[in-house]
Design a binder for these strands. Structure first.
Length: 304
DNA sequence: AACCGACTCAACCGCCTGCCT
DNA sequence: TAGGCAGGCGGTTGAGTCGGT
């Protein structure tokens, strides 16, 4: 038995809003406010719409000072950083971008930004961002050394794709969220085409404790194309817990979201230290370019 | 010109949360 | 404390548009 609907679905209009409806809603709210009751609002102003629909129309389209389209590099950076930090919590992300709605950001992420980051062009994009934003401002010197070593290794081996590393640079406004979910900082200290090893650490400002264990991710791509809808890929995850020696296998749809969730789980369960990725199963030659990079191709630092 | 697939984004759906009684 | 309700939210849908053939 489902939940009772918020309104009589048969008696309300659906679909795109007309300019007349917009005008009525906008004019009323500007004069009287919402009265803290969206459900009764349509009746009060005489339009056949669901209260929730009115709320959405106001918040996403009619309210003042909204910006549509034309996201700047700074906004891109904030969205990316926060997405990496807190995941798809669009309302929180939107709260950091004045004039943007959660819906706009969600659409922008799903249709453009995600692809931008996952494409080869994302590399240039990363570089652009790093010109604008100070590199690795919260990185420790040891991290920088690791990054340098990492860079040197990859320069030698000509694996330029893997020159992209994750830098622990997260906007300060996300600190509360970070501490709540114990956001990890990823410090890659070893990388080769089919093996990326991260050091997990907490944000130093939030916590200083470490955990000790390791796990491995064996990712098996079910798709060979990145840049369409293939951010979701069937992957095989194997977790080897050093402390107990037990092993866990599971399959999941892996995009970065899953990767992130797994990391958080690792930390929440006191399993930190190292996380290792192995590209051990390669259905085709595109595998490495795509699947591994889909994990490490996120923020936002390029040593070149 | 017609067709078709990809893309965009406004809008909807349904679940979750928190407030009120 | 429990139940009902409205608000808030993220995921998803589908109509409209665009670009390629």
């Amino acid at each position: 038995m489902g939940r009772a609907p918020c309104c009589d679905k048969t008696a309300v209009k659906k679909g795109p809003w007309s300019t007349e409806e917009d005008a009525v809603l906008k004019s009323f709210i500007e004069k009287h406010g919402t009265g803290n009751n969206w459900i009764s609002l349509p009746q009060r102003i005489g339009i056949k719409r669901c209260g929730k629909s009115c709320r959405l129309r106001w918040l996403n389209y009619l309210r003042p000072n909204l910006k549509h389209g034309g996201f700047t590099d700074e906004e891109d950076y904030i969205i990316c950083s926060l997405y990496i930090t807190i995941g798809s919590r669009w309302s929180i992300i939107a709260s950091q971008l004045p004039g943007r709605t959660d819906n706009d950001i969600k659409n922008y992420w799903n249709t453009r930004l995600k692809k931008k980051l996952m494409s080869k062009q994302g590399k240039a994009f990363h570089q652009q961002l790093n010109v604008k934003f100070e590199r690795g401002t919260t990185s420790s010197s040891s991290t920088q050394n690791q990054i340098q070593m990492f860079h040197d290794e990859n320069t030698k081996s000509n694996q330029t794709l893997y020159n992209q590393v994750v830098v622990p640079s997260i906007p300060s406004f996300a600190m509360e969220e970070q501490s709540m979910i114990k956001n990890p900082i990823l410090e890659p200290f070893y990388c080769e085409p089919n093996n990326v090893l991260f050091d997990l650490d907490h944000d130093a400002a939030a916590s200083s404790y470490h955990h000790h264990s390791s796990s491995s991710l064996n990712s098996m791509s079910s798709s060979s194309s990145i840049g369409t809808n293939s951010s979701l890929q069937m992957s095989h995850y194997t977790s080897n817990h050093n402390d107990h020696g037990d092993q866990q296998d599971m399959f999941f749809m892996a995009g970065f979201e899953n990767f992130q969730a797994e990391l958080f789980d690792e930390i929440a369960n006191n399993n930190t230290g190292e996380i290792e990725f192995h590209g051990t199963e390669m259905p085709n030659n595109n595998y490495l370019d795509h699947d591994i990079s889909s994990f490490i191709d996120y923020p936002l630092y390029d040593n070149e």
